[in-house]
């Protein structure tokens, strides 16, 4: 009787330890904030060049993360990159004339999308498109242009 009970207590303790570990991993290690799993609304933006922007890259506004890149696809008629953004539901007042830039975190860091809100009273709704965008700065191109203009200036 008491051996059986000890066994049950130990198994119970094991399961609690396992779930505590899972809970610790979810809350402390990962960015789980309850309820924003697939919520929020979707915006799209077209870029001439997205550089190395990947799905799941952060979308920030004033440096604060407000969403994530959902996917990056190619528009085969205009040869533009179409980026789908998933914006958190509570950030529902992004003006229509907002500017979307692709920035790089640090010199070699990953790329993310920075939003600069405009002044329009009209807000973007689910499925809308951000019309004003600026492509990623490709470091190699910039260096190439710089060298080219240097060479041109000298002659």
């Amino acid at each position: 009787m008491s051996r059986e009970r000890n066994l049950e207590i130990l198994v119970g303790a094991f399961m609690v330890a396992g779930f505590v570990a899972l809970f610790f991993l979810s809350m402390q290690v990962s960015n789980l904030s309850l309820g924003n799993a697939a919520e929020g609304y979707q915006l799209t933006a077209r870029f001439a060049n997205v550089g190395s922007l990947k799905a799941r890259a952060p979308v920030t506004l004033a440096g604060v993360r407000v969403g994530r890149v959902e996917r990056v696809t190619l528009d085969r008629t205009t040869y533009e990159a179409v980026v789908a953004l998933r914006i958190d539901a509570e950030v529902d007042n992004i003006p229509e004339d907002t500017f979307a830039n692709i920035f790089t975190a640090g010199l070699l860091g990953e790329q993310y999308i920075g939003l600069e809100p405009g002044g329009s009273p009209e807000m973007l709704r689910d499925g809308d498109e951000i019309m004003q965008t600026q492509s990623a700065l490709v470091l190699e191109q910039m260096i190439g242009q710089f060298l080219f203009s240097k060479a041109g200036g000298d002659s």
């Binding site: 330890a17 396992g18 610790f24 991993l25 290690v29």
Partner: peptide, 15 residues
């Protein structure tokens, strides 16, 4: 049932 719990303990203790 034991495997995911053990893996979670492993990862948490490892962190």
């Amino acid at each position: 049932l034991a495997m995911p719990l053990l893996a979670a303990i492993f990862s948490a203790v490892g962190v």
